[in-house]
Design a protein around this nucleic acid. Sequence first.
RNA 1: AGGGGUGUAGCCAAGCGGUAAGGCACAAGACUUUGACUCUUGCAUGCGUAGGUUCAAAUCCUGCCACCCCUGCCA
Length: 559
Amino acid sequence: MKLIEPTNFIEEEINKDLASGKAKEVITRFPPEPSGYWHIGHCKAITIDFETAKKYGGYTYLRMDDTNPAKEDGDFANSYLADLAWLGYKPKKLIYASEAYFDGMYEIAEQLIKNGDAYVDEQSAEEISATRGTLTTPGKESPYRNRPWQESLQIFRDMKAGKYADGSVVLRAKIDMAHPNINMRDPIIYRVLHAHHYRTGDKWCIYPMYDYAHPLEDAMEGVTFSLCDMSFEDHRPLYNWVLEKGWKKPYPPRQIEFAKLNLENVLLGKRHLKQLVNDKKVMGWDDPRFLTIVGMKRRGYTAQGIKDFIKSAGVTKADSVIPLSALDYHIRNDLNQIATRAMVVLDPLKVLITNYEGEEEVLIDNNPNDETAGQHKALFSKEIYIEKEDFSLNPPPKYNRLVVGGIVRLKGAYIIKCNKVVYGKNGEIDHLECEYVPNTKSGNDTSGIKCKGTIHFVSANNCFEITIRNFKNLIKDEYIDPIKAMSEGVTLDEMLTPNSMTESKALAENFLKKAKIEDKFQFMRKGYYCVDKDSTKDNMIFNYTISLKDGFKMPKPTK
RNA sequence: AGGGGUGUAGCCAAGCGGUAAGGCACAAGACUUUGACUCUUGCAUGCGUAGGUUCAAAUCCUGCCACCCCUGCCA
């Protein structure tokens, strides 16, 4: 296997192992426990696992790390397959650790007992906890620690046969109760659990612990590099101990840790998201305000944008917190290349073109940055709607939209001049009276008139009402680190932005009637939106994905 | 003297003894029939800190400081 030009420390380590012959190929795994929905943090791990292996011509397994029947559920496992496919990754194989490796792990456990490397402890959970010692003091050895291995083996077999109650006995690795690393103080490697497993049913009533299971799963699978987050760094000595005592074969897997992804003003914890779902603060796990995969997908984020963001963040061991603006950048960047342009007036103001009768087609580029995207037809007619904020009675400096007596270009159509503001009974502006300049049609402008502003519009004869779902960040700006805030006593409720989801109506070009769920559009000059799954034939709902960058700083109103 | 990690700009991050890449954000300007996109320019005499080694140190050595993780029969 050839070496590559490393782009991060993990690849440097892999290169070293490949060069020295410690490893022969790069096979990785992504090992979720099927007990919750994936979020953007998982995307980082997934991306690293899959991209790293791919770069070396290796491959990646998707392995359900389902060693705890009390927490796991097959629905989650199925959701992962869909999420992974959406992200654009295809695992070499889907493996359920429970089905594939439980037998092998059990055999190895018996071997460990026979070798004197593991023993059955009959102390209570409280006793085990109390004798583990503390961060600064060593633990005490269990009275069962040096019992004959034959005794341990017999009990272990009886545990497996169902003769012991939950919590009454455990199998422990015999390492060192005085070890400065607490993980090495005779860790429990098997516990009794009479629970129904979503894959293996009632076949087992003893289940291996993570620290014992993970290295053996990796080894049996043929994984060569087991990449995980920094919180497992302290577990690496145990990972290696299990391999050394239980696996004993050449080319064991190597665990390498990297720092996980943290974002400002974002809550990702399963517990907290679940609370928000249960309390009906959001629409569900796929709420567009969540950075779960299903949430981001519904919001209109693209897999490409998410992956670009993750790659841009890099792979290191240092703690970091990335502002949301970095994610926004990559989402916009990708959407800019793929989203179809459309004209939608979010807050309509009626305009009558006094010197125009009838109607005519105008052509709008589907994507000015992509010639192959084609064009679609919009309409110009006597009665149109423009955005309220595109007209001003007392314009701020550098305002180049419509003012009384001023001109503006209607995107794809004519230049118009505003002659009169017509007020309604309540004193509000009812509509504008404008005239169009005949020889200024887009693509055919012979007038020579220079017009600074271009605004979007819809024709009354070519629009329909849609529903817009607007989103604000779920967490208030001041809570950059929500978990920390909670630890300081702030409640989840206090951190929530009030009315972070609102609905409004807008007028869209008829062209948008054909749009299907998840289709992505740029509402010109406003932002990116996508069709929500709640849409019906009579009520199309568009989710606000993200705004366009706005270089014009609208000054505060003058009065 | 518990153990394990990490400190480079507002935020990420290259750098691996030869004189601080790049991106985000921000600012100014050009272009523009989207105030988008694109383009140009600016943005660390400084690499947690104090010493030391060297012709030369973000890189090597020593001390100190700060922050993160670890006492589940969770993963």
